[in-house]
Design a protein around this nucleic acid. Structure first.
Lengths: 108, 108
DNA sequence: CGTACTGTTCGACGCGGATCGAACAGTACG
DNA sequence: CGTACTGTTCGATCCGCGTCGAACAGTACG
């Protein structure tokens, strides 16, 4: 099997999504996956962000994001590739991804 | 003085907003204030939602929402009136309020 | 088969935050 | 002034969750 179970986007609530995005590490992950654009190895991505966490912690965050319907996981040999569910997320929560990558970060 | 200090909307980051909205009680509060449409007493609003919390807890949540730039507080005699910062929030985080009141709640 | 690597699972730990009650501040009113 | 009411502030408590390490599972490769 090369696919990992993920919730149907219709069953995902905005409440769960907000809880998932509330954590700074997960928010960084989502932005990094968004910057990657397509399938990327979670370990490589987190390494590129400069965030230092254990692999068990990363596995935990990946699971939370997957349960929140934000990402999709595929098995590729010994490693797992992750990708944002662009279409699903945009259809169910229009404008959400734009808010995350928007300029609502720095202050003026 | 009839106004309570609130952060300039430009200084508010999406990270803080997401953290503020991650709590179920605060999310309920925002939706209730949104449904109210204009100035409303926090105690009355929370009572209408059926949520039962102490007044100190409510005061805490109101402060978190205010620091997140989502609501505005005005002093009216012995009570404080609260209102969503519709224009500011919509300008800084377009589509955010729509996401909260959207149908991203129930599953089909 | 044995080794090496990636990632998951399972307990356990620690901290931040939600919650409460009590005390205090400010206003309205008689 | 004294009483009553609303809301804030301050400690204290409690619990969820992020974090880690160790053990385990699955794959690749010689």
């Amino acid at each position: 099997m090369t696919e990992v179970i993920e919730p149907a986007i219709e069953t995902v609530t905005i409440d769960v999504v907000l809880s998932a995005l509330a954590d700074p590490v997960r928010l960084t992950l989502v932005r990094a996956f968004d910057a990657a654009g397509d399938w990327a190895c979670g370990s490589d991505v987190v390494r590129s962000t400069g965030v230092t966490i254990g692999k068990s912690t990363l596995s935990h965050h990946i699971k939370v994001l997957r349960d929140a319907g934000l990402i999709r996981t595929r098995v590729d040999g010994v490693r797992r590739l992750v990708m944002l569910r662009y279409d699903d997320v945009e259809r169910r929560f229009p404008g959400l991804l734009a808010l995350l990558r928007g300029d609502g970060r720095a202050a003026t």
